Each structure stands twice: as C-alpha cells, then as structure tokens.
Amino acid sequence: MKALLQRVRGARVEVAGEVLGAIEQGLLVLVGVQPQDDQAAADKLLHKLLNFRVFADAEGKMNLSLRDVAGGLLLVSQFTLAADTRSGLRPGFSTAAAPAHGEALFDYLLQRAQQQHNPVASGRFGADMQVHLVNDGPVTFLLET
C-alpha cells in the first residue's frame, strides 16, 4: 500500500457539494492499493499512521504522533498513487489493485482505524471527490508497506 500523509490544520472531502468527512488538526491520508496488498499491509500502514511522529513537541521537534496530539484522521482512497509513472508521459494503472480488491482493503483499513482511533473520517471509494486542506508546514510523507 502507498499512502501520502499530509499534516493538516484542517481538511474535508466533498462529493457533489456534500461534505462526507472532515477533521481539524490531524492527518489527511491519500491511500493507494496495489494488487499484492492484503490485510496485513493495511494493519502495518495503520500502525504507522497512528504512531508516525510528525507533530511538534514543546521544543518544536517532530516528536509527537497522531495519537499523542489526539488529532483527526481523514482517509481518502486514491488509486492514482499506485500508478506506474516510470516511463512515458501517461501514467499506467496496471500496478493499481482492481477496484473490488482496492475497495475491500480500503474499507478494512477504515474500519480498523475507526476501532483504534477517534476521530476518523473518510471520502467515498471511487467517487469524484474534492479534497480541501490546509497543509501544516507543509509536512508531507510518502509511506509504503
């Protein structure tokens, strides 16, 4: 799995003008699923998302996790993260999971996140979404399992 993690002061995702999910301070995470990914990969990614130290401590060092700051987690499926961009000028998507596999694994990740953390919000798998965010820093990391 690939995840583009962005530390945010606030973020929301909309479909057709309706807000589906929103958080205040926390992490906006765009999630891409690849064919070989499984529930173990999702569990590993979630552990990293909840514990990755990207928030400033009292001394201004990135030393606190999402759990430490009780921040929000906004998960948004984004199959384009799994695209093959190594050659040419058009991305290839043979490296992305089939929609049914991607949706099942994204739903699993979301369910596990909701069991382990609060607040958790999400977009809608496969929808044309508009994502709004105020990137804090900016702080952005690409995580891979």
Rank of each mutant, 00 (worst) to 15 (best):
V13W: 10
G32P: 02
Q130G: 08
G10Y: 08
S122C: 14
L30Q: 06
L110S: 11
L64N: 08
L89T: 07
G60Y: 07
V15K: 08
E14L: 12
R90C: 12
A82N: 09
F106Y: 13
A127E: 13
A41M: 05
H132W: 15
A97V: 07
N51T: 15
A3K: 10
G88P: 04
A70M: 01
Q130N: 13
E59N: 14
Q114E: 15
D37L: 05
A82D: 10
N118D: 15
V8Y: 01
A3W: 08
V8P: 04
N63R: 03
A42Q: 12
G60R: 04
G123A: 14
F141D: 02
V139H: 05
G102K: 03
T145G: 15
N63F: 05
D107G: 13
G123P: 14
R86Q: 14
L110I: 11
D136F: 10
V54I: 13
F93G: 00
F125M: 14
T85E: 04
P138H: 03
L109Y: 09
Q78N: 13
D128H: 15
V54M: 07
S77K: 09
L105R: 00
L50F: 09
P99M: 07
S65P: 14
L133N: 10
T95D: 11
R67Y: 06
V33E: 01
V131I: 15
V69C: 06
L105T: 00
V13F: 09
V69G: 03
E14K: 11
R112V: 11
G21M: 03
S77F: 06
D107M: 07
N118G: 13
L27S: 04
V31A: 01
L46M: 00
F141K: 00
L89K: 14
N63H: 05
L50D: 01
D107F: 06
D37G: 05
M129S: 09
V120L: 10
S122V: 09
G126T: 13
K44F: 15
G137V: 04
I23P: 08
V139I: 13
H132K: 13
Q111V: 01
P119C: 08
D136T: 07
D107H: 12
L66C: 01
G123N: 11
L27V: 04
S94I: 06
L142W: 15
T145A: 12
K61Y: 11
A42F: 05
M1P: 14
D84F: 05
L20A: 05
S94G: 15
L30D: 05
Q6T: 14
M129L: 10
T140G: 12
E103C: 09
F52E: 02
G72V: 08
A16E: 15
R9I: 05
S87F: 12
G32S: 02
R53S: 11
M129V: 08
A121Y: 09
L4R: 07
D136M: 08
L5E: 05
A3Y: 07
K48N: 10
G26W: 04
Q6E: 06
Q114G: 13
V69D: 02
V33H: 02
K61W: 10
T95H: 06
A100R: 15
Q39L: 12
M1E: 03
L109Q: 03
L74Y: 00
D68V: 00
K61T: 12
G126F: 12
P138W: 04
V31W: 03
Q130P: 04
A113D: 03
